[in-house]
């Protein structure tokens, strides 16, 4: 789970989290057991549909300003340690 969340935690941290998560899961267990036959899910409180933007070009950011805020950059690109493997 920590790998999926991309958190590099120590064994102690993981052990503590495990206990806290299990307490919390107990706490929300009521939801898991809720009788919800025929109840549709609500993903969002607003009943809006079809919100669009016209296909018109707007100003982009200045590259120098953006790259200045980056931890590292080179030749107009963001620089990162080697990416191993393809996207999943």
């Amino acid at each position: 789970m920590a790998r999926l969340a991309r958190l590099d935690l120590t064994d102690d941290e993981l052990a503590a989290l495990k206990d806290e998560l299990s307490d919390l899961l107990d706490h929300v267990d009521r939801i898991r057991r809720l009788e919800t036959h025929d109840v549709p899910p609500t993903a969002h409180p607003l009943p809006l549909t079809n919100v669009f933007r016209p296909d018109e070009v707007a100003e982009s950011l200045e590259r120098d300003e953006v790259l200045a805020a980056a931890p590292a950059s080179e030749n107009g690109r963001f620089l990162v340690p080697p990416v191993l493997g393809e996207a999943p």
Binding site: R6, L7, D8, V80, P81, P82, V83, L84
Partner: peptide
Amino acid sequence: GPDAEAMNGRTRA
């Protein structure tokens, strides 16, 4: 970190 994934994990932790 030595690679991007390790860098992500260490940064976030």
